[in-house]
Amino acid sequence: MAKTPEPKRTISLKPCDGDVIEVSPMIAKQMQTIQSFIEDDSFIATTTIIPLPNVTAFQLSKIIDYLNYHSNSKAVADNVKESTKKFDEEFLKELEHDKLKELLHAANYLNVKEVLDFLCQAVADLIQDKSVKFVRKFFGVVNDYSVEEEEDIRRTHAWAFEGVEED
């Protein structure tokens, strides 16, 4: 008697630069973009591979790591809180600024709220109190103000430029 294969329980995601990554439905559920794919009538769990043309394997695995860690540590005991904090710190430490920005993009694209919240807070913490020059560089902003226009804004919001890192 032929064995019927176990029904496939994972969701297949294909990043732009690597092999297919399998994730549990629990994790996939937290990615709104994937979720809307799954809910589509044409989706067949056993065969469909969801292409993610603008998410790299590195970004996808970072996001999955984060979700995995946090879904496994929902308890509120003190020591769990401590280790979660440590995990979050390590997670950020390993990311250079460019990687952080790209990951934010990926999290926004996948629409995964928990990671997006975390990364937005990291960015806010990073650029707050920094010089305009630093923030421009960080966001990749090209300054299209004329000298006079910029001077005018700096003058009207003078209090906003006091007590922070100078250019």
């Binding site: 902003v141 090209v142 103000y145 910029e150 919001h157």
Partner: peptide
């Protein structure tokens, strides 16, 4: 304060 300050980044 810092949010308002971003108005100087670009148009």
């Amino acid at each position: 304060k810092h949010a308002v300050r971003t108005s100087v980044l670009s148009k």
